[in-house]
Amino acid sequence: MGNLVQAELRKTTTTGLWWGLLIPTAVLALGWGLATGLLGQFFVDFASTSDVDDVSDFLGVTPDQWKVSLFGIARAINISTIFPMVFGAMAVSGEINRRTITTTFLTSPSRMHAMLAKMLVYVLWGAIYGLVIMLFIAVGVVFTSDSGQLPDAGGWAMLTLVCVLSSILMTMLGVGVGALIPNVAGTVVLLLLYFLVIENVLHLVLAYLEVPSVIGFLPNGSINGLTGSVAVDLFLSSAGVVPPEIEDVLRAIAGAGGALDWWWSGLVFLAWSGVVFAGGWAVTQSKDIT
């Protein structure tokens, strides 16, 4: 197994795809980080000069102490992890497309071994992407925010953890979908459409039907819940007592409307990744490579 993992690792490092996707990922993360800080600053300035005593009363702290950057960070993670998902999506579909899968299977004890080795290597890449994403978001946010709006050290650690987890999970889902639909363009288009459009529409429909709790069980809803719930928890922990209605609004801002606790969300998304990977595995296992 170690041999196959090394082989898969070499496959990823001997072409330019890893940095070709990592550069736009870093740029996007940095951009969202900068925007988060600027928007947060704008909001805090606005809130400080306006008649927002009511809100201040609710939150128990003055506006300049609101850690508004948390929401932007959660959103930035969600959008940036699209890239590691696309990277994962190319893992199997790319090999089928270029017909290198033949040699891969000829040099592997079984297809199962090859698929597992691939998954392990892409988990590692997911983690690397996650760390880079967090680093660039942090640089952007710190550059444009007042220290009062930033999380504390524990908060940063927690956000880094969920960012890396989220990136790994998204990569795994990508690998699974790429195996299920062995076509590079089809896989990427489907994933982007689903995560950027389809499920967002679905969220609106579910909210309209007054069953928002279903959202937390959908793929995008659960992966957003993983980061969003942590952001909301961190915000609330420094904001005092908050009525449930306001909490719901805050969750929606963090992109975690209808979501479960962060670790529950992570498990739900892991289950989605597992189901898709199992499907992709079954397809690959029985496939005639002609």
Binding site: T14, T15, G16, R98, T100, T103
Partner: peptide
């Protein structure tokens, strides 16, 4: 039809 990655 055994493939190679063109960039490798």
């Amino acid at each position: 039809a055994q493939g190679f990655h063109p960039a490798r």
